[in-house]
Amino acid sequence: MSSPSGPSAGRVAVVCGVGGYVPPGIVTNEDLTARLDTSDEWIRTRTGIAARHVVDPGTATSDLAVEAGRRALKSAGESQADAVVLATTTPDQPCPATAPHVAAQLGLTGAAAFDVSAVCSGFLYGLAAASGLIASGTAERVLLIAADAFTTIIDPEERTTAVIFADGAGAVVLRAGTADEPGAVGRIVLGSDGEHHDLIEVPAGGSRQRSSGIPPEPGEEYFRMRGRDTYRMAVEHMTTVSQQAVESAGWRMEDVDRLAAHQANARILTAVGDRLGIPDERRLSNIERVGNTGAASIPLLLAQAAEEGRLTAGQRVLLTAFGGGLAWGSTALVWPDVAA
């Protein structure tokens, strides 16, 4: 008979590599004002965004994911992983999943590979899935990538979303380790509210619309979001779930050295940071230069902050996200000694 807690008791996932990637194309606010009825001031005051990276024609989510994954593996000093988890809202195709293709491109053919669909909370849902693979003994090493070519589902003529959303990817490598190590992933607090599934959505293109036999109305194939309701829900849920994650980790809010929140909108980030009582200098942010990159947002932020020395080994980091679903999540961890 095995021990009551099983053969992998005490095994937890530990972050041991991080990497981020944005495509080279840049769209500035000035570029947008040339084709949309908006202004640099309007975009900056409403969103805090000055520029965003966008894919070139023909570039897919997997191309972004492969580059971020390669960088995270290099950061970990590894070439192997026995599972690849890809969080994305914009898969290369409706079927099959994009993760197996990403794994193959990275020379990881044969590894377990699947996609996670949780929109802007995808990285935290993916982290929970990856942690579970390790805790259960299913995998020793997991490459978790979050990537979105979000601009591919944005109506270029819709000024409220076209100014916010952008493309990018971020990744972490997780290995089996113990809970007392820096980088150990503890409890991840997750939640959802499908009563508000239509707050953030792409109405057409799925089985609901296809089985109706009714062609989509113009614009229904694009992403849409109700801005004011999204602001309210994001602020409330990100604040609450962050408080739960900090409590669950046995920390107090003043112990948090760095807040790494989904870079949804600078106004939301300010409202959440203020409510949590985390001072401005402890809030990581890159939204001004990369916009809202969907699922990629948190790991891209971690990679850039680590590279620039704003996130260093031993700092206590609070990760928090909210997005379509609705779905939200948060966790707290001690940042390990990894170079992006």
Binding site: R46, G227, R228, R232, V235, R267
Partner: peptide
């Protein structure tokens, strides 16, 4: 007070 500021005020 733009639309997001009004939501913040409501909260």
């Amino acid at each position: 007070l733009d639309s997001l500021a009004v939501v913040e005020l409501s909260l």
